[in-house]
Computed example of a mutant assay.
Amino acid sequence: MDYLRAFLVGGAICVIGQILMDTTKLTPAHVLVSFVTSGVVLTAIGIYEPIVELGKAGATVPLPGFGYALAKGVIEAVDKDGIIGVFTGGITATAGGVAAAVFFGYIMALLSNPKSKS
């Protein structure tokens, strides 16, 4: 049942992104920024946590989940370190994911043979 819920929640997030790109003039970059920002805002007002509890990885892996991780990191760091946590919490909470993305992106760039779109 967890797999089904993760699939449905993650799929719904992806469908929303696709609808935004198909029906508006938003570029993928606009949708990316909007999703990360919405993850932060929805976490700050307490709406995204129930979505994460329902969809688990289906809610934490897509782009709003990155915003969720940033916001949760800031909230925890502020509780622990005070105002300095505003600047350090999000970075600390997401450092592993960012490092993995850079590392694997670099490996794929070394292994692939890109061609121009002629």
Rank of each mutant, 00 (worst) to 15 (best):
T23Y: 15
L54V: 09
T37A: 12
A69L: 09
P64V: 02
G85T: 13
A95I: 13
K72N: 13
T27E: 05
R5H: 08
L20V: 09
V15R: 13
A77I: 02
G58M: 13
T88P: 01
K25Y: 07
A109F: 07
S116Q: 06
T43A: 00
H30Q: 11
A77G: 05
A44G: 03
H30K: 08
A59D: 06
Y3E: 12
Q18I: 08
D81I: 06
F103V: 15
G65S: 03
Y48N: 00
I19P: 09
A99T: 08
T60H: 03
T23I: 10
D81H: 14
A100W: 05
A93C: 10
L42H: 01
K115S: 08
I19A: 14
Y68G: 01
G82M: 11
K117A: 10
S118C: 07
A93V: 09
G85K: 14
C14K: 07
R5E: 03
G97D: 06
V61F: 11
D79G: 13
M21F: 08
I51R: 05
G46A: 10
A12Q: 00
M1Y: 14
A93E: 11
A71Q: 09
I83M: 09
S38M: 15
T60N: 04
P50K: 06
P28E: 07
V36N: 06
V78L: 03
I13E: 07
F7A: 15
L26C: 13
T24H: 11
V74I: 14
T27P: 03
G10H: 13
G97F: 04
V41W: 02
F35M: 12
Y48M: 00
M1G: 14
T24Y: 08
Y3R: 14
V102S: 01
